[in-house]
Simulated scan of single mutants.
Amino acid sequence: MTSSTKAEAPLHIPVLGREAVDALAPRDGGIYVDATFGAGGYSRMILDVPGTRVIGIDRDRTAIAGGFDLVDAANGRLTLVEDRFSELADVCAVQGFESVDGIVMDVGVSSMQLDQAGRGFSFRFDGPLDMRMGHNGPTAADVIATASESDLADVIYIFGEERKSRGIARAIVAARRETPITTTRALADIVGRVVRSKPNDIHPATRTFQALRILVNEELDELQTALVAAEQVLKPGGRLAVVSFHSLEDRIVKTFFNARGKSGGGSRHLPEVSQLAPSFEILTRRPVTADDAEVAANPRARSAKLRSAARTEAPAHPADGLQDWPSLATVMRGG
């Protein structure tokens, strides 16, 4: 990358950014996918290696628009595409690449989105209860207005890992009978009357907001589908690096790598069933976490985990079925 690229692009260092890019081992002539472009931190670091090319994907058109200066400064080595990262295989094909040398994913909401009150992701600011990473589909306010009490309780319990999910769901349904719940502050206040917090605890609404955000953006389905797409697109030796921020995401990544990083499919009872050759070599037997300095500079880094693996020469495994958790379509049918 030229010095002009560094000067013109806004400085953004994603959580575990250097560790994730080091795991990719970018090289001159390599093609890389920044599957969650955000503020462009990963792309910028990859482009620092001369001769690299990057395809940046983000469903948030605000993020895409914010990367135009970096596109100009990269002199043809960066292409940005507005799409879901689960579609990365199709995005690469449209760009003329059947296979790539590395893929990096930073799963979940970005700090940039959290800091914009109008996006409705955070209870720290009062704003419309939106939470969409893109600009299509139902908002969190739509979910709150439509979902049945039992569905709300399931969503908050499964995606938010909130033990008081049933009480929160009851309170939401009672409140919406009186007046529509359309702002982040209104929802946070309702949750705060059910969940009592002690000093130094997380905000009472943290888990409920997380659960709604995951549902609205179908984040876990997106992650599962994106991992399968990455397996299909990576060249032998190509690297996949995934940074996640909560246990549900990390569990999906860990399970995916473990299933594909070891032989399986046959047994002594069914010797005729051919075993599947490992499609990945796991590079991180234990997840990489942020050091004390990064956590001090960015508290969000405390929960971050990086897992990485290298693609083998073996064929991709059959795609896994999506897990049985609440779907946005089902919840929006109400009850």
Rank of each mutant, 00 (worst) to 15 (best):
residue 84 R to T: 02
residue 84 R to A: 03
residue 87 E to A: 15
residue 89 A to P: 05
residue 89 A to L: 14
residue 90 D to C: 03
residue 91 V to K: 08
residue 92 C to T: 15
residue 94 V to M: 09
residue 97 F to S: 06
residue 100 V to C: 10
residue 100 V to F: 10
residue 100 V to W: 07
residue 101 D to H: 11
residue 103 I to Y: 12
residue 103 I to G: 14
residue 104 V to K: 06
residue 104 V to I: 12
residue 104 V to C: 08
residue 104 V to A: 11
residue 104 V to M: 09
residue 105 M to P: 02
residue 106 D to W: 09
residue 108 G to V: 02
residue 110 S to R: 00
residue 110 S to K: 00
residue 110 S to G: 01
residue 111 S to H: 04
residue 113 Q to L: 08
residue 114 L to C: 03
residue 115 D to V: 00
residue 116 Q to R: 14
residue 116 Q to V: 12
residue 117 A to D: 11
residue 118 G to Q: 13
residue 118 G to K: 11
residue 119 R to Q: 07
residue 120 G to H: 01
residue 122 S to M: 14
residue 123 F to P: 00
residue 123 F to A: 04
residue 124 R to G: 05
residue 124 R to F: 05
residue 124 R to I: 02
residue 125 F to E: 08
residue 125 F to Q: 14
residue 126 D to Q: 09
residue 127 G to A: 10
residue 127 G to P: 10
residue 128 P to A: 15
residue 130 D to Y: 04
residue 131 M to N: 12
residue 132 R to N: 13
residue 133 M to A: 03
residue 134 G to H: 02
residue 135 H to D: 15
residue 135 H to G: 05
residue 136 N to T: 06
residue 137 G to C: 09
residue 138 P to N: 08
residue 139 T to Y: 02
residue 140 A to T: 06
residue 143 V to C: 00
residue 144 I to L: 02
residue 144 I to V: 15
residue 144 I to M: 01
residue 147 A to F: 05
residue 148 S to W: 06
residue 148 S to I: 05
residue 148 S to R: 01
residue 150 S to K: 13
residue 153 A to S: 09
residue 156 I to D: 07
residue 157 Y to W: 14
residue 158 I to N: 08
residue 158 I to V: 15
residue 159 F to M: 04
residue 159 F to H: 08
residue 161 E to H: 04
residue 161 E to A: 13
residue 162 E to R: 10
residue 162 E to G: 11
residue 162 E to Q: 13
residue 162 E to Y: 12
residue 165 S to Q: 15
residue 165 S to K: 14
residue 165 S to A: 15
residue 165 S to V: 15
residue 166 R to S: 14
residue 166 R to E: 12
residue 169 A to I: 15
residue 170 R to E: 11
residue 172 I to S: 00
